[in-house]
Amino acid sequence: MQYTLLITGSPYQSKACNTALRFIKAATSKYPNCIKGVFFYEDAVLIGNQVAQPPRDEINITKAWQEIAKEQNVPLYLCIAAAVRRGIISESESHRYELEQHTLAEQFQLEGLGTLVDLMSTTNKVIQFR
C-alpha cells in the first residue's frame, strides 16, 4: 500500500504542511516505504522557499520537511507553474527567466502536474491536505 500526499494549503494560511508532516512521520514510522511522493500545489509551494526565515522560537517547517525527506528518502515535488509564479525558482529556471537569483530549497524539485498524475496512477491513494 503506497500513498501520495497532495498538499495545497499555504504554509502561512493553513496548517496543511504541518499536519501532513505529522502524517508522514507517523506513517513512515510504521511502514517505512508507504509514501511514494509528496506533491505541493497552490500556495503550499511556498514551503520550498530557501530564503524564508521563520522566528527562532517557531518550527522551521521547510527544514522539517527536508529532514524527513532525507531520512525516509521521499521525493518532494513542487508544481513548477505554481512555484515559478510565486518566486520559487530553481537554478535552471533562473537561467530560463534570465534571473540572477534562485530560491528553491534543497530536497525540493520542480515538476509539472504530469508528475502528480503519474503518482496518482501508481499509488493506491492520494491524500490531500489543505
Binding site: T8, Y41, E42, A81, A82, G112, L113, G114, L116, V117, M120, S121
Partner: peptide, 19 residues
C-alpha cells in the same frame, strides 16, 4: 484567490493525460 484557476489547471492536465 487562484484556487479555482489551479483546480481547473489540474483538471485539464488530468484530462490531457487521458484520466
Amino acid at each position: 484567490s487562484l484556487a479555482c484557476k489551479e483546480g481547473l489547471d489540474l483538471a485539464l492536465v488530468l484530462a490531457t493525460f487521458e484520466q
